[in-house]
């Protein structure tokens, strides 16, 4: 196993572990109070739960289709940005869609590599098709992403609101993404061996077999991508997957707390924790639990005083 192997495995490992740790950290946070926000797409349009008299006696009809009909246009077309911030849409869509295309190219290369490892001949039908789509996908992704990174950079500098809230981190992220797109574009565009090299590279990574030598632009691209893998999980760019939580665990999370229901145990755990807020009216002492504190609504004391 070469040093190159170790660098690749190490970067992928950091990426996977850091992403899983981040997801686990979020998922392990306590059940929060309800904070849903309309539209909640799994509800029946025109008849949301609370629009029915005695709503708790009706079954909750949840429509997965409703959720997908919001998520797909949002992910693929950035519908929210189109509707609420059209001036940003072009930069944002090109930046994101370029990445989708590059990820698509990587998936195709991976499939190609799996077939090679499995012994399917390179001139068989499927590998030929995969090889045929790899380069166009990579070129389109690289080109679109490059345009997006430049457009986003211009927007971030010229739109006063975006400029005012930009931190150094934003420009580093953008430069990093831009470098991925430009190097991917140049590699796919200028190197005749791009398809074969990438498929062999992935196969080599899958099997720990010797890795092909790459042109300089190839090494550059791989290095920048690996660095991105290491860096990404620690940035706000993790919104690519945490968005799932903001939608499914907050905006669309409307499970009612019913007696004997699945939330009860979690709520019991929450309210049994000691609280240490310092304001006098809270009455916390680090030992009293939330339940102790909120159960004291003052009437016992008042009744004694009145008596």
């Amino acid at each position: 196993m070469s040093l190159f192997h170790i660098v690749i495995y190490g970067s992928l490992l950091i990426f996977i572990v850091a992403i899983l740790a981040r997801a686990a950290r979020i998922m392990r946070m306590p059940l929060h109070l309800r904070w849903e926000l309309q539209p909640v797409p799994h509800e029946r349009p025109g008849a949301s739960t609370f629009e029915r008299v005695d709503w708790w006696t009706h079954s909750r009809d949840r429509s997965r289709f409703g959720e997908l009909s919001i998520m797909i246009p949002e992910i693929l077309l950035l519908k929210g940005v189109w509707e609420h911030n059209r001036g940003l849409w072009f930069a944002s869509w090109t930046l994101h869609f370029g990445l989708y295309l590059l990820i698509g190219a990587m998936v195709v290369i991976l499939l190609h590599a799996v077939l090679l490892v499995a012994g399917v001949l390179a001139d068989a039908f499927v590998p030929v098709v995969l090889a045929a789509v790899t380069r166009p996908l990579a070129i389109a992704g690289g080109a679109l992403g490059t345009v997006g990174a430049i457009a986003m950079l211009i927007r971030r500098i010229t739109e006063p609101g975006m400029r005012r809230y930009a931190t150094a981190g934003h420009f580093v992220n953008l430069a990093h993404l831009g470098a991925i797109y430009v190097t991917a574009l140049l590699w796919a565009l200028l190197d005749g061996g791009f398809v074969a090299e990438t498929a062999t590279l992935y196969a080599g990574v899958l099997t720990a077999a010797p890795l092909p030598s790459l042109p300089l632009i190839g090494y550059l691209n791989v290095a920048i991508v690996l660095l991105f893998f290491i860096y990404l999980p620690f940035t706000h760019m993790t919104h690519f997957f945490t968005k799932y939580f903001t939608y499914h665990m907050v905006r669309w999370e409307d499970t009612p707390n019913t007696a004997g229901g699945r939330l009860e145990e979690k709520i019991r755990r929450n309210v049994s924790q000691p609280v240490s807020w310092a304001a006098a009216h809270v009455g916390a002492n680090g030992k009293k639990t939330w339940l102790d504190l909120v159960a004291d609504t003052g009437e016992v004391k008042r009744e004694t005083e009145e008596a």
Partner: peptide
């Protein structure tokens, strides 16, 4: 615990 998860997100 009441709002930690949405707040951190």
């Amino acid at each position: 615990w009441t709002f930690l998860q949405p707040l951190v997100l």
